[in-house]
């Protein structure tokens, strides 16, 4: 636990002091800002603004955003040689992985939290009529979704030495986990299609959280994905000791 806290603290501090992190945050805020303005622009044409518009965007953007965050987590430590010190310190491998994951997730959470400002603005300009609870539900969903994407990204960061390869593979995997929601359009056997779809991240967000329905099973799903992915990452890091 001490190890998790220490590594988490270092990660967070490194996000707050790295220009790269601010650049990404600014880019995300710019894009979501444009989206938000568009969304209320449309609502002046008598269409109510979609409370889940920003989270919906994240569901897609995470395909690129999450690997960008996670690719460096372990690969950079390996490159700088600090992984050797981490692994020879009296810290468990799980502390290292969980601490780093928690740091990345916290950074993502902060960016997500900033975009919640839009909902508050909407609440003001719509005379308090925004479906804030629905928006909150979508945000909870996309927060978990993001955690799962980061966990998937970490597996690839641990599995490959090369950052670019790690990012590329993670992107490809996340793309499949996103587009797989529509697997039924290509696979005629509905049971197979349904099984595959059930494994995708998007299917546990788009038809529940995004429409304002909080389902325990989706929370279990995302928590499970995070747990399994972190477990695999830990095993991969650990394999350095016996390979």
């Amino acid at each position: 636990m001490n190890g998790v806290r220490t590594i988490f603290g270092r990660e967070i501090a490194s996000y707050f002091t790295s220009l790269f992190a601010y650049l990404i945050a600014a880019a995300v805020l710019l894009i979501t800002g444009i989206l938000f303005i568009n969304n209320i622009g449309r609502s002046q044409d008598q269409v109510a603004p979609n409370p889940a518009a920003i989270p919906d965007f994240f569901a897609f953007a995470l395909i690129f955003f999450a690997p960008l965050l996670t690719m460096r987590l372990l690969a950079e430590e390996r490159r700088e040689g600090t992984l050797e010190l981490l692994l020879t310190s009296p810290t468990s491998d799980s502390s290292i992985v969980i601490g780093k994951f928690a740091g990345a997730w916290a950074y993502y959470t902060i960016i997500l939290a900033i975009t919640f400002v839009y909902q508050v603005i909407l609440l003001n300009i719509s005379q308090g009529q925004t479906d804030l609870a629905h928006a909150l539900c979508a945000y909870i969903g996309i927060w978990l979704y993001g955690g799962a994407c980061l966990a998937v990204g970490m597996v690839f960061s641990a599995a490959t030495d090369n950052q670019i390869v790690a990012a590329f593979l993670a992107s490809a995997a996340l793309f499949l986990l996103w587009i797989g929601d529509r697997v039924g359009e290509v696979i005629p056997n509905i049971n197979v299609a349904r099984f595959i779809r059930e494994l995708t991240l998007q299917s546990h967000y788009a038809s529940s959280f995004a429409v304002g329905l909080l389902r325990a099973e989706d929370i279990v799903f995302f928590a499970g994905i995070i747990a399994v992915m972190l477990f695999i990452t830990i095993r991969l890091v650990e394999s350095n000791r016996w390979r």
Binding site: R10, S14, S18, G81, T82, L85, L86, P90
Partner: peptide, 29 residues
């Protein structure tokens, strides 16, 4: 029970000197 300095000094370039040493001290309890 070991203090280890690898051949290539492993450093976190973005940390301060003190922050760096403190980090390892914390990590080793």
């Amino acid at each position: 029970r070991v203090g280890y300095l690898p051949e290539r000094v492993p450093l976190y370039p973005d940390m301060t000197t003190e922050g760096y040493v403190t980090f390892w001290a914390k990590l080793r309890g």
